[in-house]
Structure formats: C-alpha cells, structure tokens
Design a protein around this nucleic acid. Sequence first.
DNA 1: AGGACGATTCTCACGATGTGCGAAACACAT
DNA 2: ATGTGTTTCGCACATCGTGAGAATCGTCCT
Lengths: 259, 259
Amino acid sequence: MSTTKSSRDSAGIRSADRTLAILDAVGSAPDGLTAAELSHALALSPATTYRLLATLQEHDYLVRSRESRYILGRAVDELGRAVRAQILATPDARRVLSGMRDAARAPAYLTVFRGDDIAVAHVADSAQHPRIGQLHVGFAESAHITAFGKIMLAEKDAASLTRYLDRHGARALTAHSITNEAALREQLDEVRALQIATEVEEYMPKLACIAAPVRGRSGRTIGAVSVSTTAEDFASRAHDLERIVRRGAWHVASASPGV
Amino acid sequence: MSTTKSSRDSAGIRSADRTLAILDAVGSAPDGLTAAELSHALALSPATTYRLLATLQEHDYLVRSRESRYILGRAVDELGRAVRAQILATPDARRVLSGMRDAARAPAYLTVFRGDDIAVAHVADSAQHPRIGQLHVGFAESAHITAFGKIMLAEKDAASLTRYLDRHGARALTAHSITNEAALREQLDEVRALQIATEVEEYMPKLACIAAPVRGRSGRTIGAVSVSTTAEDFASRAHDLERIVRRGAWHVASASPGV
DNA sequence: AGGACGATTCTCACGATGTGCGAAACACAT
DNA sequence: ATGTGTTTCGCACATCGTGAGAATCGTCCT
C-alpha cells in the first residue's frame, strides 16, 4: 500500500502490464510510435522503454519501420489468425448455417460466448445474400442492438449483464437503437420469455435481424443463430424466418460435440 | 552469466518474455490451455503462472472458457485487426491495383516490407478473377516461391537474406518449388538484373505469377506489385502481363506519399 | 568536414518486485 | 463425507527490473 500513485493501476505483474500497454498503444497508433513517444505516453524511463521494446522485438510482436517507428509485427498477425481460428465454428455448424442461408434466402450467423464476451463464429453469406455491414468472425460489439446480442445478453444474470454494459457501453448506431438500460432489461425479459430476439433498424437502417438461442446439454444458452434481411422483407415473412432460426439453432446444438 | 540454464533464453525482460510466451502457447493450442498445462510447458511455478494469467486477463488478452481453459481474448482480436489496418494499402494504391486487375483480367497484389518481413498490403480480386490460395492481407510466408517474394528478397543484402532464410526456411509447396539456396540466390541475381520476377507452378500447381518492384524516392525497392493467372494463360501473354505490372508498380510508387 | 543534436545502448548500485514454497481455501466429482 | 485437483494466500528472500547518467552511435545541418 505504499505506492498508490498511478490512477488505475492494475494489480498485475508490472512488467507484464507494461508490455501489454505497449502493445495496446502501438496497436492504436495507425503509424506506430517512436520509442520516445511510448516512453512519454506510458511514463517510463527511456532505458526501460528500450528494454521492453527489445523484448517485444525478439518475439516478433513489434518491428521497426523504415522511419524507425515501432509497429506491430508478425507474431501479432499470427495471434490474430489464431484467435479467429479458435472462434471459428466447426464444419458441421457451418454446414447448418449454409442450409439456413439457403432456406431463408438471407445471410445466416452463428455467435458464441467467449468468456464474458460475444464472438461471431461464422457467417454464411453469398453474393446473392450479402452480409450486413462489416460483420466478420471475431469479437462482436453492439450486442444491445443486434438480435444475436440480445439472445446472448438475455443469458447473463443481472450482475454479469451490468458488468458487460459497463465495459461496453450502449452506443446508438441508428435512430432506433436502444440505449436506455431499463428498456433494454425489459426487452431481455421478453427475449427470455419468447426464446427469440429481433432487431429492426437498430443496428443499420433498412435492415432487420432475428435470432434464436442455441442450447447446450445443460439447457443453458451457449450461442445464437440468426439471419438478417431488409426491414421490409422481414415484415412480410417474420414467422417463416423465426421457424428457420429456431430449427437452425436446434441443428447447431445437435452438431455441437459435448457441450 | 551465472544462470545459463534454459536452451534459448532471450535476453529480454523475464516477465515480458514469459507473458509473450504464454500468449504464443495459448495461440498455438486450438482449444486453449489450462493453467497447469501452461505452468508445465513454460516451467513456471503455479503461483507465478496464475499471477501472469491474471494480468493477461485484466487486459483482455486471455479469457477463461467454460471448461476453465485459457483462450485468446478480445484484445488479441483487436490487435489482429490493428495490424491488418496498419498493413493495408492506401486507397490510392488500392485503386491502382483494381485497375491492374481489370487490365490483366487477373487478380493483382501489392506487398510491402514490414521490418525484415514481407506483408501483403492489398489483394484486388473479384468473383471473375479469384485470388490464389488463401492469400490475405497480413504477413506472407513462402517468399522464395512467389513472384512478389523474389522481388522483395532480391532487395535484401546477403546478410539479411541469410537471416531471412534461416528464420523462415524454404519449404517446397509443389514439385517445382525452389528449395536449394544457391539456386535461389542465382535467381535473385537475375531478378535484380531484369527488375522482374516470375514464378510458374512453384507456389501452386497450374498457377503462375509475375511481379515488378515498387521503387521509393531513393530508388530502393519498397514493395512489389504482381498478378497471378493460370500457367497456361501466363505462357500465352507473359509480355502483356509484364508491362502491366511494370506500369502498375510505377503508378503505385507515384501514389505513395513521401516514401 | 565539422559539429551539434537526438536516438540508443551501456554501466552500475539500489531496492522494489516478482518469485517459489507451503499451507489454506475452494471446487467438484465419486 | 472423502478425496482429488485447482486456485489463492502469506511470507521471506534475492533476483530482477529499474532510473540516472555517461558513453556511443547515427544523422542532419550549414
């Protein structure tokens, strides 16, 4: 308790903290950073900065650009591929999603939990049925205004939902985006009751989405299956799409080993 | 000099070393690792392992899966996106590549240096002109059997070429792949002379590729521009494609700010 | 060329920091 | 309950990282 100087000092191992802080800093600088900039930004002495940077370079996490700025290196790219590979759905699940896309004539999505976070495990789209926005395999944001996100949030208990919202906020992306936390909690009750979630123009104008929970052996929600289409199209065949995602969710659960 | 126990101990900061070693280990395990497995793999005491893992969790680099295994977390995904964003070519360069693709009726690629490594900065393909294999924006391997790779390797001096080959090896992917280092060095001389590189069925059967260097203001090669097509097609219009990549390289250089 | 400035590495001594050990608390199956 | 295995805690030690400042390197300027 003697040195409580920094504002939000993580209780972790200091050198590890600093190492990760450097990675984060370099990652959020489009053109990388110089040693001096890092040293200043993290309040480290130049010597220490260089030592940490040297270590990061040895592991190929950082590299020096021609203009002697530090930029992200090959190991980061490899880790990025690794995390996506870890998240990616199994071939069986992907097959189910393709079937859903064909049945719904709309792109289909599978999302799963990853720790407390939510990740997109597969997108089944095609030239005829383009995906919404820039939704790729990887961690997902904006859970509060997506159909799959509502399914996933509905699974969380009060405490962990609060934690999630505190960490991720609830930004509005369209005029219909829900940002009021109380209203969201009510919606989630409805989701829990119906075992289905929808979203109309909350995430992107003119688009709508519907999602159903994937249940594990224990009965707990382990993921969500969803399809997206235009708001107009959705209005005319919501019931069909609902059946498609419910059926898809069941098939994905059957295709999931063990869980 | 007292403790020279481990085989290849990096001279870096130990905690940072260990932190990155954990990340690498978790990244290369498809289903993540348990604390015990990590502790054993890295020869760390359980207590230390947990402390480091806690730090990595705080920064969202790791997350615990349902089965209490450690898996890569959201921060890793974000860093992965960041590195790709850092590598991605400018809109101007991308426009040039699209023009090349249309002129060549074949996918066009731009690669750049990233430290000593080689990275793909853009791929201009289309449904009519699909890309070769799984070539995406990010760090590239197999430089010795790709046209763009030969351009890039030809820029390196003897020492740094040796270093590169030592670190990356020279694996064969087809029966035509060059793996003999002496033969490769001769080829690179030819590349330096002609300022053009080709590759026929060295990287993938039935495919061929041709690349030209992008020169910076100083005259040094800062990247490569290439197109790929079938070996058959390449044989019939190699000269046309050569002119296209040479012209494309010049246009990319003009579109590159400052360098 | 000279010289001046910034960037980078080296040296060194101090002590905070990370460490391993063992015990305790916890989780979870049988 | 009883037993494994996992995770955290407490503690004392010395290792390891640290900052300051000097020394070296590289580069730009005129």
